[in-house]
């Protein structure tokens, strides 16, 4: 990869340079980063690809055996794993939909001038800057069935959000919505403030209604950036580990990342968990690809 970077150089800047040539500097600046990322991200992935075809168990010293595609076959026909994927899909849909609605709604409300707007916007952004693991922990206190403030405020008696199999996943999703709606809000605000004011003025002159203005002017112009928020949050929600892991141990809230963690570091089924990691990885890379494509599109505009 580094060798491709060795050709082509602007001769003018080369002539201007004294000391090290631009070529040397360019390589010196870029190659260490590429090498670092290859050594600590790509090499480990190749290493685990190898293990995914074995029955290796990291907690035992017995020699491992090559098992071919058996791990992948077993995983893809394992109902348990499929249920983890279904749980993850439910979680992604509920929490990302919630974030899009709440986040975009907040942005629409905030998109006007009023005193202390900057301060309020910053305060609203606080949740997403926090550690998801610690957020998950303290929401346990908020959800507490007997003395938690949530049940008290909503008059839910002793409803056990996190130990009820039916509600645990949605309780986590609510917390995730609280944490990440501000992200969607931030992006939406950027999109909204980029809508040319004269379009609204023209619509007002034409006596266009609120709904018409919203669907014909606001939404089409904001949608590229909303799409970016949607893809990014989908990718992140799909990978969710911390917040769900520290909040609940309910099997009904066992997301695929938690399943992977348990399989690798509690059951020590290393070979098989490498295979599962690859299945997850391929899905994440597909979403990443989509994300970068749209990011570049918006950037070019």
């Amino acid at each position: 990869m580094a060798s491709v970077a060795l050709t082509n150089l602007d001769p003018a800047s080369r002539a201007a340079a004294r000391g090290w040539s631009d070529l040397t500097i360019r390589n010196l600046f870029i190659i260490p980063t590429l090498v670092f990322l290859i050594v600590f991200n790509i090499f480990p992935l190749i290493y685990s690809l190898g293990y995914s075809f074995t029955n290796f168990a990291a907690n035992r010293s017995e020699p491992w055996q090559f098992v071919g595609l058996q791990n992948y076959r077993e995983l893809l026909s394992d109902d348990h794993i499929w249920s983890n994927f279904v749980i993850t899909a439910k979680y992604v849909i509920v929490s990302v939909a919630g974030q899009m609605i709440v986040g975009f709604g907040l942005a629409l409300l905030l998109n006007r001038s009023f005193p202390m707007k900057g301060l309020i916007t910053t305060l609203l952004l606080l949740p997403m800057m926090m550690s998801a693991a610690v957020v998950g922990l303290f929401w346990q206190l908020l959800y507490s069935p007997s003395w938690g403030p949530i049940n008290y405020v909503f008059g839910l008696g002793d409803f056990a959000w996190l130990s009820n199999p039916d509600s645990a996943l949605y309780a986590v999703a609510i917390t995730d919505i609280w944490m990440w709606s501000p992200f969607v809000m931030l992006l939406s605000l950027a999109g909204l403030s980029a809508v040319p004011q004269h379009l609204y003025e023209a619509a007002a002159i034409d006596r266009a209604g609120w709904w018409y203005t919203f669907t014909r002017i606001t939404l089409p112009l904001v949608s590229p950036i909303l799409l970016i928020a949607l893809i990014f949050r989908t990718m992140e929600a799909f990978k969710t580990f911390d917040i769900a892991y520290t909040m609940t141990t309910q099997p009904t809230a066992e997301l695929i990342a938690i399943r992977l963690y348990k399989q690798a570091f509690q059951q020590w089924d290393t070979g098989k968990s490498c295979a599962l990691a690859y299945i997850v990885l391929i899905m994440v890379l597909a979403i990443t690809n989509l994300y970068v494509k749209y990011l570049n599109k918006v950037k070019e505009r």
């Binding site: 293990y51 963690y261 690798a264 990691a277 970068v292």
Partner: peptide, 24 residues
């Protein structure tokens, strides 16, 4: 392509990277 490669390393799920890194 290089920039995409660089960004894609950020998107790797931590647990996926952690398994081989733990062994190494």
């Amino acid at each position: 392509d290089l920039l995409f490669f660089i960004l894609s390393t950020r998107m790797l799920p931590p647990v996926v990277v952690a398994i081989p890194m733990f062994l190494m």
